[in-house]
């Protein structure tokens, strides 16, 4: 019964993961990360339903809170990078290396 939800969740997670790996634009990468997080949320809620307890739903709220906080910080960083480097490509921000 819940298999469809889980399949959807897995699909969304895969799309998000592939997006993170292949896209260069930081905003898009960021959105893909959100997509992965929400895929996880879907899986949590599904399992909560399946097992009939509220733990998964609770975790989903936590994830949302963390995601919101992450968006605030992450977008601020991206804006700052864009202002200094005139580019939002993650491949251009590669100064921290060997």
């Amino acid at each position: 019964m819940t298999t469809h939800y889980l399949v959807l969740s897995a699909l969304l997670f895969a799309i998000g993961g592939i997006g993170v790996l292949v896209r260069r634009n930081a905003i898009v990468v960021f959105m893909c990360v959100e997509l992965m997080l929400n895929a996880c949320n879907l899986a949590f809620v599904t399992f909560a339903r399946q097992h009939g307890n509220l733990d998964g739903q609770l975790i989903a709220f936590f994830v949302m809170v963390v995601a919101a906080a992450e968006v605030v910080i992450g977008l601020a960083i991206i804006v700052m990078i864009f202002r200094t480097r005139r580019s939002a490509s993650v491949d251009d921000a590669n100064l921290l290396k060997y």
């Binding site: 993170v20 790996l21 993650v90 491949d91 921000a93 590669n94 100064l95 290396k97 060997y98």
Partner: peptide, 17 residues
């Protein structure tokens, strides 16, 4: 070994994957 640290975020993401 140091050469592994390329600075490309996406390659790090791949290794995490």
């Amino acid at each position: 070994l140091r050469r592994v640290q390329t600075g490309y975020v996406r390659s790090y993401a791949l290794s995490i994957l």
